[in-house]
Write a protein that binds this DNA or RNA. Structure first.
Length: 313
DNA sequence: AGCACA
C-alpha cells in the first residue's frame, strides 16, 4: 500500500463571479507552475487535465532535462489559485505514484496569439470563443459540453479512442446539450474534482435521469461524492451503497439532460477518498421515478403471469 | 465491471 494518501482535499472556492472578473488585475500573475509529472508526460495530458477548469486559458509543458514543468494560464489570479490548490498533491499517475506540486508562477505564461494550448496547429475556429467562454465559468461551472465544438460523433469520455470503435450511444445521438434545465439547487457551486483520469465506459445503458457511479473503493467518502454532485445543475438526490470491497452510488437528476451533462463532464473525475482514482459514470438500469411501470410489470398484487391487456394507453 | 429505492 504505502499510500501516503492524497492529503488535503482542496474544497474549491468558486472564483467569485460577482467581483469584476477579467478586467480587475491585468498584471496579476494568473499562471500556475506544476511539478511532479512523470518524465513521459505529454503536454496534451496537462491540457486535458485542465481544460475544463473554470477560467482555464492555456497551458504548456516544458522539459528541463527529463523533469517536466507545466504552466497553465487562467483568466484570473483567483481561478489560478483555485486550480493550483486542486492540483496540489494530486496523484497524477498511480503507477509511478507521481504526485503533483503546484505553485503560482513567477510570471504569466506567454501565449502566442492564436495558441491556447489546445495544440500547436490550432484550428482557427473557436479560439476566441474559448477565451470568451472561460469568463462565464465564474458564475457557475457550466457543463463543458456547452462549448465543445462537438461534431455529433464527439464522445467526451473517450479520451482513449475506442478500440473497436464501439459506440454504445450510436442509437441515441446525444442531444446537443441544450441549456440544462434551471438548476433546482442554484446556490451551491459544484466542488470541482481534483482532476480526471481517462475512463473507458464500455457498457452503458440508455440515458436516463439517474446515474450509476462505479469504480469507487470502499474508502470512498460520501461527503466528497456529495460535494461533487450536489452542486451539479439538476441534482435531486444521491444514494450511496456499500458493497463490501467497493462502493456504488446513484444520483437522480431533474431531467435526462442534466444527467447526460454530468455523465459526460465528470466521467473519470478523481475521487480523492476512493482508492481507485477516477469514477465511472453510467446511466442507471433502474432510474428513479419509474415506480409505476415497475409495479405494473410485476403485477405485484394480482396473478403473477397474467398478461396486461393494453386496454388504455 | 459492482444497479437500490419506490
Amino acid at each position: 500500500m504505502a499510500t501516503a494518501g492524497p492529503p488535503h482535499y482542496a474544497s474549491w472556492v468558486p472564483p467569485t463571479g460577482h467581483s469584476a472578473p477579467s478586467t480587475a488585475g491585468v498584471d496579476e500573475v494568473r499562471t500556475i507552475f506544476v511539478l511532479g509529472f512523470p518524465p513521459d508526460v505529454k503536454e496534451r495530458e496537462l491540457q486535458n487535465l485542465l481544460r475544463w477548469w473554470p477560467g482555464y486559458e492555456a497551458s504548456q509543458m516544458n522539459f528541463k532535462g527529463d523533469q517536466p514543468m507545466g504552466f497553465a494560464l487562467f483568466t484570473s489570479a483567483a481561478a489560478a489559485m483555485a486550480a493550483k490548490d486542486a492540483l496540489q498533491n494530486l496523484v497524477f499517475d498511480l503507477e509511478t505514484s507521481s504526485t503533483l506540486r503546484a505553485e503560482m508562477a513567477k510570471k504569466n505564461l506567454y501565449v502566442k496569439r492564436g495558441v491556447t494550448g489546445m495544440g500547436t496547429e490550432t484550428p482557427p475556429f473557436d479560439q476566441s470563443k474559448r477565451l470568451r467562454t472561460a469568463g462565464d465559468y465564474t458564475s457557475q461551472y457550466a457543463p463543458p459540453g456547452g462549448f465543445a465544438p462537438a461534431p455529433a460523433s464527439w464522445v467526451p469520455q473517450s479520451y482513449i479512442p475506442p478500440a473497436g470503435s464501439f459506440d454504445p450511444y450510436a442509437g441515441y445521438c446525444m442531444p446537443p446539450l441544450q441549456p440544462v434545465a434551471q438548476p433546482l439547487v442554484t446556490s451551491v457551486a459544484p466542488v470541482a474534482p481534483a482532476g480526471y483520469v481517462p475512463m473507458q465506459n464500455t457498457k452503458d445503458n440508455p440515458p436516463c435521469n439517474t446515474l450509476f457511479v462505479g469504480n469507487l473503493g470502499e474508502s470512498t467518502n460520501e461527503a466528497e461524492l456529495r460535494g461533487i454532485f450536489s452542486g451539479q445543475p439538476g441534482f435531486r438526490q444521491m444514494k450511496v451503497l456499500r458493497q463490501g470491497r467497493s462502493t456504488v452510488c446513484f444520483i437522480e437528476f431533474a431531467d435526462v439532460n442534466s444527467a447526460i451533462a454530468v455523465h459526460n463532464n465528470l466521467q473519470g473525475a478523481i475521487v480523492m477518498s476512493s482508492d481507485r482514482g477516477g469514477m465511472r459514470l453510467q446511466y442507471s438500469k433502474n432510474p428513479f421515478g419509474r415506480k409505476k411501470e415497475f409495479m405494473n410489470n410485476h403485477q405485484e398484487n394480482g396473478a403473477p403471469g397474467v398478461p396486461t391487456r393494453d386496454t388504455n394507453t
